[in-house]
Write a protein that binds this DNA or RNA. Structure first.
Lengths: 311, 311
DNA sequence: GTGAAAGCGCTAACAA
DNA sequence: TTGTTAGCGCTTTCAC
């Protein structure tokens, strides 16, 4: 039925004046849809997460969805508990950024028919739509950059190999280095923190193998390397070049500013949300279900040509 | 009724096996309680916010509540829209950290009978429970520290005066400096970003009045001052000491590491959540309704005695 | 086209 | 104590 615009205006004005608000809860009970999407992240305190969350929210807001964020704190028990919380809240879909490969939460969610999108991860066993950064391309660019500067002995500090992006980056490093690869210069950490990075770098320094540059799987690992630089009086980039991954806030203000691979986290969040909306609106099938987002090398002060060896 | 523990176990096991989950939505419709708390923040991307959110979540989780975060992006229209979203989601209570003084959202929420707690802000007109940092004490410590180092000409860069913490800090600076206060060395910014801080600092430098130290109302303002230091070749702390406020991540890694006032954001979040729970459980009245959380001066490399004037 | 009625799954009130 | 029932506010169906 068409109503006169003026009438419509007066009705909603009256509704507002009376404090009327349609009851979302009752609607949800009836329609079995909550207009809520769950987003599982590791930890909001990790500076890479908030931009992602905001990206997701921004796009979903345009479609009338609200986002419920759940932190797993890198703990798989907690991850399952949070998954149950999201389920019990009857979210219409989920965006997962916590996922180790072959994850029971992923398989469970998919099996239950909940629309799911993976962010930063790819599942080994199930076919789930997802958004990842161009981890291989980014790592390759980092290596190329160092090679162009003249580095030959390049070390790599990898993150824990439970996340697919971590695996991809390590593989890409090995591929990119090709015959120059020295397996003794590759260290795989147990986690992704500065402390892990510092320990790995110390192990490299204390080892018998020389190197003039280090590539890390993430800026947070690189933060630990700055600590070791300071502690041992190593001058970067003169004595050792360093490349990170992600372009975290403030790394451009460090001494020296960190050369790194910029990942568009906000845009990746939007992209993931878009894939989810496709499923929520039931028009999946069209368009690509796996999106790889391009990344960009940002050259700053932590990389330079290797020092010329005396003699 | 008491049931045998074994029976209880078998029942819940059977429930699990059958995939039964009590329907939260139906329960909420019936009980008019959602076990959800809304939290309004300015922007998750501000590094001070996530620890606060996690603190809130952590405590509320213990009481079975879920947190719905809404970002206002420092925009009052958006703030009101987000408030409506939270209302329409029928949250049981709200924690507000966005609030300018005399804010329609605060007064509206209070008038509607929704339990509310203010975080970092205090309302001018209504009596609302809240948690604030010891802004006065912190600012005083910053000034004392500089005075102890021998500084006499101390400038202050204030944040926009729409937030009560911002007002408190400025007032505390003026009080703490007492007869040494030079009103020409006080700059009030239009916001809280690095760009605002940089502009304010440039204005001070380009002004006719000398100073040997700057206190800022927040680390983010101080970030802009680092930029100006770098740009104009000013050596900190030799030529100018600098004190921030908040102790943001990574400020300890800057050249020089920032001396600042550490604010326990996580704990403040927990505290605010605790005040809210009191109201939700209907046992307010007991205990203090306004909590001031102590802060701590963290001395790092950006402060030193003033350079001795030649001659 | 309009209007009445049933029912989503739970809890609280009530009856037995 | 235990079991039954009404009804939260909406949407959707069905009868008119």
């Amino acid at each position: 039925m068409r109503v006169h615009p003026e009438t419509a205006r007066r009705v909603s004005a009256a509704a507002r004046a009376l404090g009327y608000q349609p009851n979302t809860i009752a609607r949800s009970l009836r329609t079995r849809r909550t207009s809520t999407v769950g987003m599982m992240v590791t930890d909001l305190t990790n500076p890479l997460i908030p931009p992602t969350v905001r990206g997701v929210e921004q796009l979903l807001e345009e479609h009338g969805y609200t986002v419920l964020v759940a932190n797993t704190d890198y703990d798989s028990d907690r991850e399952e508990r949070q998954y149950e919380v999201l389920r019990s809240r009857r979210v219409d879909g989920m965006i997962l950024t916590t996922a180790s490969r072959a994850n029971p939460v992923i398989t469970g969610a998919v099996a239950s028919g909940t629309p799911v999108v993976l962010l930063h991860d790819a599942a080994d066993d199930v076919d789930v739509p997802g958004v990842v950064a161009d981890n291989s391309g980014g790592t390759r660019r980092a290596v190329e950059h160092l090679r162009e500067l003249g580095h030959q002995r390049i070390a790599y500090i990898a993150g824990r190999q439970i996340r697919s992006f971590s695996v991809e980056r390590l593989r890409a490093f090995r591929d990119a280095l090709g015959p120059l690869l020295r397996e003794e210069l590759v260290v795989i950490c147990d986690g992704f923190t500065a402390a892990h990075g510092a320990a790995a770098f110390r192990a490299l320094l204390d080892g018998p193998h020389e190197f003039t540059a280090v590539v890390t799987a993430s800026d947070s690992l690189a933060m630990g390397i700055y600590d070791v630089f300071a502690h041992r009086g190593i001058v970067c980039p003169d004595e050792c070049s360093l490349v990170g991954f992600h372009d975290m806030p403030l790394v451009d203000k460090l001494p020296p500013p960190l050369t790194t691979i910029r990942v568009p986290h906000h845009q990746m969040g939007r992209q993931a949300a878009a894939l989810l909306v496709e499923q929520l609106l039931g028009r999946n099938g069209s368009g690509p279900r796996r999106v790889t987002v391009p990344v960009e090398l940002v050259v700053r002060g932590s990389t330079a040509p290797p020092a010329v060896r005396p003699g």
